[in-house]
Simulated scan of single mutants.
Amino acid sequence: MKLIDVVKNIDNYDDEMTIYAARPWSATSEAVVEYETSDGKPPETANKLELGYFLEVFLVKEFIEGWNENNSVHIDHESVCKRVIEYAINDA
Results as ranks from 00 to 15, higher is better:
89 I>R: 13
23 R>Q: 15
64 I>Q: 02
15 D>C: 06
71 N>M: 11
47 N>S: 12
14 D>W: 10
15 D>R: 07
47 N>I: 13
55 L>D: 04
67 W>H: 14
77 H>D: 14
55 L>G: 06
35 Y>C: 03
51 L>D: 00
13 Y>E: 05
68 N>P: 07
27 A>Y: 01
15 D>V: 09
7 V>N: 06
86 E>A: 13
12 N>Y: 12
47 N>D: 13
45 T>L: 14
63 F>T: 03
64 I>C: 01
40 G>A: 02
53 Y>D: 02
27 A>T: 08
43 P>R: 00
76 D>H: 10
47 N>Y: 08
64 I>E: 01
78 E>F: 14
58 F>W: 11
62 E>R: 14
38 S>G: 13
14 D>M: 08
82 K>L: 10
72 S>I: 15
19 I>H: 00
41 K>N: 14
22 A>C: 09
84 V>Y: 00
91 D>M: 13
83 R>Y: 05
7 V>D: 00
48 K>M: 05
14 D>F: 07
8 K>S: 10
83 R>H: 12
64 I>W: 00
41 K>Q: 10
32 V>W: 00
18 T>E: 02
61 K>N: 07
69 E>C: 12
69 E>P: 08
73 V>D: 08
88 A>S: 13
70 N>P: 06
2 K>I: 08
34 E>D: 12
7 V>L: 05
8 K>I: 09
89 I>A: 11
2 K>P: 08
38 S>A: 15
9 N>W: 06
54 F>M: 05
41 K>T: 05
28 T>P: 04
33 V>K: 01
37 T>F: 02
29 S>W: 00
44 E>C: 06
26 S>R: 12
48 K>C: 10
41 K>H: 04
71 N>K: 11
7 V>C: 04
4 I>Y: 02
15 D>Y: 08
37 T>D: 04
3 L>M: 02
46 A>C: 07
37 T>P: 06
20 Y>S: 02
85 I>K: 05
61 K>Q: 03
82 K>N: 13
42 P>D: 02
38 S>V: 13
42 P>Q: 02
59 L>V: 11
83 R>G: 05
2 K>A: 11
25 W>I: 08
57 V>Q: 00
74 H>M: 13
81 C>T: 09
76 D>N: 11
72 S>Q: 15
20 Y>P: 09
